[in-house]
Design a protein around this nucleic acid. Sequence first.
DNA 1: CGTACTAGTCTTTTT
DNA 2: GACTAGTACG
Length: 737
Amino acid sequence: MSVLEQLNDKQREAAMQLEGPVLILAGAGSGKTRVLTNRTAYMIDEAGINPWNILAITFTNKAAQEMRERIDRLVGFGSESIWVATFHSTCVRILRRHIDLLGYDTNFTIYDTDDSKSVMKEVLKRLQIDTKQYPEKRFLNRISNCKNELSSVEDEERDALGDYADEMFAKVYREYQAGLKKNNALDFDDLLMKTVELFTSFPEVLENYQNRFLYIMVDEYQDTNTAQFELIRLLSAKNKNICVVGDDDQSIYKFRGANIRNILDFEKVFPNAKVVKLEQNYRSTQTILDAANAVIANNSSRKDKKLWTDKGEGEKIRFITVDTAYEEAERIVDLICADKRAGKCDYRDNAVLYRTNAQSRLIEEKCVMAGIPYSVVGGVNFYSRREIKDILAYLKTIDNGKDDLAVRRIINVPKRGIGATTISKLADHAAATGQSFYDCCVAAEEILGHGRAAEKIAEFVELISVFKSKLEFITLEQLVDDILERTDYEAMLEESDPDDAQERIENIGELVNKVVAFEEQNDEPTLSQFLEEVALVADIDNVDENADKVMLMTLHSAKGLEFPNVYLAGMEDGLFPGYMSICADDPEEIEEERRLCYVGITRAMDKLTISAAGSRMIRGETTRNPVSRFVKEIPQELMQGKAPAKMQPKVQPQAGPVKVKPFVTKAKPFAYLTKGSQISSTGAPDYGPGDRVAHMKFGQGTVTEMVKGARDYEVTVDFDNAGVKKMFAAFAKLKKL
DNA sequence: CGTACTAGTCTTTTT
DNA sequence: GACTAGTACG
């Protein structure tokens, strides 16, 4: 019984209930992963359940990986045959086997949001819809919502009757789906919806999986949307052995279609469900838990829970108010530095959490200046960076020429003299004949006739087919290297934007690392498999906790993680809770933000620091915001330092952000941060070789070289902390010291 | 066909 | 303020 001995009474109760529906309401830090893993181990080792009959679903690859590793450590053998995967990858695996029943090819490609946008653009162009009046994003959002709610094109057409806007939407929806299908592609939401469609249209396929997955577990259940709920309901309908783990207080993905009712109504949908509450927290001090409890208590629709710990009171919560966001970043970085110098922590023990990605920039800058190693999670997804998408587009084109978007992306990257007119001629022909774009490239001479254009296309086709023929003999790593070499891709980067070239080349290096890792992890790695894996990664999946770096991330990304020291930055009304949620009529909006705050507070193990700035730049404009209402919901006695008296709202408390005239902040201390402050279009910079200068991102350094270029000076600076950098004077905004 | 400039959007969060 | 897409021009 050793796997159960590691659990407390409540946890054990949840782990031992294998039959029937089980809802585990697991508060933050209550050891839910431990319950899931030990429950699984118990199933296999004690209850004699075949691991092959177990399905465990998570939201991120990271969570899936972690769960599998932990089960591995507990179970003697057999853990590799458990199906542990994310919702999306589970669906992909199922669809790869059966989607032909729905009229798709089983080697479909998965489109990311960028790709979807391109498809939508074409649709709107074809339907002659004015994108100024109806931006593509609005359609895409609505389609996404429909799919999350399992509403098909037909459903929308039926419901639209008579309403002009709804009918137009239904038409766009139909065309968009047709566009995806033509490219043999599915978008993220399709993965779920098509799987549900498959199961409802072909009961024999569903039954096949029902017979396999006798025991189903779902992690982070509070974040499931209707499609995910339906998927689970269908899979478990026959055996009813469904165990879900979640915390309604941590439901923070409503914008993505998550339906909090899924967890709140679990007992109604699954009668006779056993409900277990886990309220003992093993992560945080009592002070932190008291603060979290006090904040979340302000929400109305929730399952009553109260976290407790035997870890002791711990340190008080530190609350810092400063005038500007710059000072906020400085203070946070200083505090981390001081702790590190005093030997109280490693860098990796610290996380700075914020509401919006844009907030990371200032903190990054201060980290660079202070020479602190840091790592930013999120922002622009690694796989959506231009250079990465380019290389992937090459790989997709080589893998199968069916993805028109990929082919068109790289047909003239790097520039090989193929212009817009040539491309649209080929695209028109492809549309008219139903062929793929790449097929038309192969037959370019017949379509375009003899000439320069056809020749250029032929060269491109030749390039791709050389790669294709090599594919069998070389490793994926060699293939990527070969692509880079033959296209002279890096040279193109250097030429087109020297400023970012280095970073982009590093990113490509990172991609190569991932390729190598992929080949090491798989016995028979194929290009298709690699592309598939890459399509479904989230930023959080790539977080390396072992590196000794301060972690910077949004509150959303932080869910599921824990750190000894947590800094919650930008605790201001208007930023967090966001302006939109304050203005919304629906009180549920604020409650969602409050849950996000609860998530943030409960990430902290030992010490929590909260900060607010009197003014900050938001969207290029300086705004003044009062201290966040959430801070005021934390009892005074838990906080260290003064009450937020001087930060009280200045004029009208309820009026939201007050805009301030720009000159207030563009004043002295950061004058060198403003664009073009010391270089006029005609004159030379006021510094030269040998001078000491300051850069907003890299800190201080010495100018070693200055070359006059066509329209600007190219300056080489040896920075004290950031090394030698080459940059253009007009962009670098260097300030002479 | 390629470049350079302009206008417009974004900033709430993401598989 | 930062980035992107679209357009006008060479």
